[in-house]
């Protein structure tokens, strides 16, 4: 097979799976709790800065993962308790509040780290020979991790007790309260899972992108678009949305250039928001 085609195909796979990884946190928070967390991108950014701080201190790359989980988890906990909890079932107010939160996190990052961007070294710098082409090893690892996290989360949600309880809370909150489910705690827990996933994605993506205060903006829109295109509350939704948005971006970027990829994604997302806001695979 033509090595160029293999590389491009792998790029598409890479684009789609990493996008799915970036979406997961928002899929949990928006898809399950119904909270349109505009600050999702800033949680990803926080994760990415954790990777930078780890490197700046000379710690091993993997140390960034627990750091991001702790920081994003604690942040998520505080935000859910202080900001989100009074606003459940008021989607518009949540939008404004999390929009303010995104500003706050961005400005805070600017104040601490400055406006400039940082590079995080790729932890696995080499390439791997695959189907007649050399492909960056870290990208392959990222594809594998993304797939594993996606499947792991899906399975956990299907079979674990907590997953079932979250499903119960989401499906019928009144009844959940009546059977004694600690609904408020469970909601906090779910929110924290979402922010942790965002932080995790941020760490993993950090070596491949410039780490800068405005990076969250792109991610929140892209991930929101994925959910709008795919539909809320289903794994199929996340996958199909990531396939459409990530696939379009990769293919158009490869065929023409990155600007056109970005434009195509914006146009497609606006069309979906406008014409089919419930997406391809919405939960009934």
């Amino acid at each position: 097979m033509d090595p160029l085609i293999v590389t491009q195909a792998l790029n598409v796979v890479y684009g789609v799976t990493t996008l799915a990884l970036l979406v997961l946190g928002l899929a949990v928070i928006f898809g399950l709790l119904g909270v349109l967390n505009i600050a999702h991108g800033e949680f990803i950014m926080t994760g990415a800065y954790c990777a930078y701080v780890t490197q700046a201190n000379g710690w091993p790359f993997l140390a960034a993962l627990p750091l991001a989980l702790i920081i994003c988890g604690a942040l998520g906990f505080v935000v859910e308790r202080g900001l989100i909890r009074p606003l459940y079932a008021r989607p518009f107010d949540t939008l404004v509040a999390t929009w303010g939160l995104s500003l706050l996190l961005r400005k805070l990052t600017e104040a601490i780290f400055g406006m400039g961007f940082y590079n995080v070294d790729v932890p696995l710098p080499g390439t791997v020979a695959l189907l007649g082409t050399d492909y960056p090893a870290y990208r392959l690892v990222l594809i594998a991790i993304s797939g594993a996290v996606l499947i792991g989360l899906f399975v956990w949600f299907r079979i674990s007790r907590t997953g079932t309880r979250i499903k119960a809370m989401v499906g019928n909150r009144e009844l959940a309260e009546a059977v004694g489910l600690p609904v408020r705690r469970l909601a906090t827990y779910t929110f924290v899972i979402g922010t942790c996933l965002a932080g995790l994605a941020g760490v993993l993506i950090a070596p491949l992108v410039p780490v800068q205060p405005f990076m969250g903006l792109d991610y929140v829109l892209k991930t929101f678009f994925v959910l709008v295109v795919g539909g809320l509350g289903t794994v199929m939704g996340v996958l199909s949305g990531a396939a459409v948005i990530g696939g379009l971006d990769s293919v158009v970027s490869a065929a023409i250039d990155a600007t056109y990829g970005y434009l195509t994604v914006l146009v497609v997302a606006i069309l979906f928001l406008w014409l089919k806001p419930r997406g391809l695979f919405a939960r009934s």
Binding site: P91, L95, V228, L263, L266, I270, L273
Partner: peptide
């Protein structure tokens, strides 16, 4: 609600890119 806001946000990014 939020979807309208998101559409305006996406449109403005489109405008910026153009």
């Amino acid at each position: 609600g939020p979807y309208f806001s998101m559409i305006t946000l996406a449109l403005s990014l489109l405008a910026f890119q153009l």
